[in-house]
Simulated scan of single mutants.
Amino acid sequence: MDIFSIWNLNKDLNYSEVIEVYRNYTSWSTTEHDAYDGAALEFNIVINQNPNYIYNLNGIDVPFAEINFRKEKVYSAERNNPLRDKRVKLTEITFYVYEYLNKVRFIVLRGSGANTLTALRAATNCISNNDITSDNLGLSEDFFYWVFQRHMNFTSRELYPNTDIYVDALTGYSGSTRDSVNDMWGRGSRISRILVTLAFLFNNDSLKSLTPDFKFKDENLEVELTLNGTFKFNLESHLGMFLLEADLTKKKASSLIQFVLEIFPNAKSAYEKHVEDETWGPDHQLNFIAGIGAEIQDRVEEKLTDISIQLAQSGEDDL
């Protein structure tokens, strides 16, 4: 799975103006030099733009471009090291930039964190701390529990009536550890889904994640969601309009933009409608967890009964 993070531009710039910032970077960037040998340090932006790089959402064209940014900086602790690869640190990020409803956003093929923000700000010539901010999609553990509950108890049904959004599978969970339980596919038996859910519940790590395979209309994409803004996606899981797309940049960017603008918003809207309708809330979460516990207890008691019968029959055979 490939890592990505989502960022918002909070400056009064549109898509074309942002592209011009990248195109004219030599006019505003400052060339830094390595004090050890006087060599110029790299600062480079490459724009991959194509007339076909357009995502269409409900009749609205959403143009996008792929940006590759490279910047070298001397690592102060090694500034006198004669080995250049020890002395000079290279930061490189690749990201997609697009605009929808007068809002410019970035999808960076790197995790959410300070280093990503620093690189994104440097590439976009942003100075203020709030010019670019991370978007964690407003995720919460309650949303994760709701997804578990919908997939467990309403496996083949829409997440909310007349929304055409489903969870086809839960491919895993994670917390502080990953083990064989994490590899169980949600398309398996109900007991497997229960075990995955229990493993999630028993892990107290605040950075829990969940990997649903969302289906919206005829589009499928498996995405690992987390609470810290670093996500992963499995492009090989994609089924839909971009399945046979030969241009990997267009396929990857379009799939991610589709997830950010269509697939996830519809899933989040279904969750919010259940909360609004009071068909999901703290009591429902409590009943869901209690129901899992009761079902596991029933399964254990059934197994113990089977073992007791087998032992009794074995004892009779020995007489």
Rank of each mutant, 00 (worst) to 15 (best):
F106P: 09
D2R: 15
T211N: 00
A77L: 12
Q49T: 02
N48H: 14
G175E: 13
S140G: 13
V88I: 14
Q313G: 01
D205T: 11
N52W: 01
K89A: 00
H238P: 13
L170M: 12
G186F: 02
D2I: 07
N125Y: 11
T197I: 15
S192Q: 10
T116E: 09
T163C: 01
N102D: 13
E32P: 08
D131Y: 11
M1H: 06
D283Y: 10
I19G: 01
S156R: 15
K268C: 06
R70F: 08
P161A: 04
Y160G: 02
F288D: 10
K232V: 01
H274C: 05
A294N: 11
I67P: 08
P265W: 05
T31V: 14
M184H: 03
A65I: 03
T91C: 06
Y166G: 09
L198Q: 14
I47K: 04
M1L: 05
T124S: 08
D135C: 07
S29G: 05
K215A: 00
L90V: 14
L9A: 06
G188Q: 10
V223F: 05
L244E: 04
N130A: 05
I127D: 04
V147N: 10
L243K: 09
S16F: 09
G315Y: 07
N204G: 04
S5H: 06
R84I: 08
L243M: 05
W146N: 13
K273M: 13
W146R: 14
N48W: 10
A123Q: 12
L244N: 08
H284F: 13
V181P: 06
K268M: 06
W28I: 11
I132R: 03
Q310V: 01
L261R: 13
V196G: 11
S209H: 00
N24D: 00
F69Q: 07
I309D: 00
C126K: 11
L109S: 03
V97A: 06
S16Q: 12
R121P: 09
R190K: 15
H274V: 00
L83E: 14
Q310K: 02
A123S: 15
E224L: 03
S5R: 08
D283T: 13
V275N: 07
S140E: 14
D34V: 12
K11W: 07
G281A: 10
T249S: 01
D179T: 02
D168M: 02
L195Q: 09
L139I: 10
K232P: 01
R178H: 02
G315M: 06
L239Q: 15
S209Y: 03
R105A: 02
K208G: 11
N220R: 06
R23N: 03
D318M: 10
D213E: 01
I309V: 00
Y15I: 08
I45N: 06
D135V: 05
V167L: 10
R84D: 08
K273Q: 13
N50M: 02
F148Y: 14
F259R: 04
C126H: 07
P63L: 00
L90I: 15
R299Y: 15
G113H: 03
D317Q: 12
I296S: 03
N153D: 15
L120T: 09
K73S: 10
A40I: 08
F95E: 00
I93W: 09
K86W: 05
Y15H: 11
N234Y: 00
S209G: 11
K217F: 07
